[in-house]
Design a binder for these strands. Sequence first.
DNA 1: ATGGTAGCCTTGCTA
Length: 264
Amino acid sequence: MTRVASWNVNSIKARLPHLLDWLKTSEPDIVCLQEIKCLAEDFPALELKGLGYHVEAVGQRSYNGVALLSREPPSDIRRALPGSEGDDQARYIEASFGKLRVASIYLPNGNPVESDKYPYKLAWMKRLATHARALLESEQPIVLAGDYNVCPTDDDVYDPESWREDALCKEESRAAFRILPNLGYVDAFRAFHAEPHRYTFWDYQAGRWHRDEGLRIDHLMLSPQAADCLEACEIDKAPRGKDKASDHTPIWCAIGAPRVAAVY
DNA sequence: ATGGTAGCCTTGCTA
């Protein structure tokens, strides 16, 4: 059984104590981090190696940045989406851990929608979908994990009307996200939880956490071969309630041993 | 009551 988690930490340096605590109590096998907000060379790798994790990061100064932590050493590391030539934003890393392929994704926010950030988001999502489709040809278990900056439906938003024209909820964003399930990827959280108003992000402002007014924007999207072995998926709200918390909280899933392969 | 918070360093920008 392999446990894969995703957590937008909103600065790895500011969140290192919380991350170390959470790793000790939750013991995930693979962790996908987003918004590390530092250069890869400044990532606090020694502290994580002390807990037995391998570290691979794609960073940039101040903004963005993604990383993979893993018990098993990674192989075949990809550090950008195909077609990202000339795009220096650190938003994608992907690697293999045995037969499992895992990506840590920090999808562009896209606000304000009148700016060039929104077409950048949609173009980035198109590149992600094209790559996600190509990955399926391997017929292997795949987890595309991360901060997608998309609320898939109104059930994933505390106040859908006020968010309807936001880049996280606009219909173009939702349609671009739906390409993944339409290709065959499974939203691991929704495989177990049909109830509305389950969130992974609560804004720092306006008491959103204390009112439980959040968004579900962090997703674990599983290829059919991974979904076949999916045993659990949960949002761990505890880290969001701590002092000096990230505005996101971890989501994780458990993937069991492969079952008997289909025979034709 | 048109704000509020957090993190980076570019004390404005991003979210």
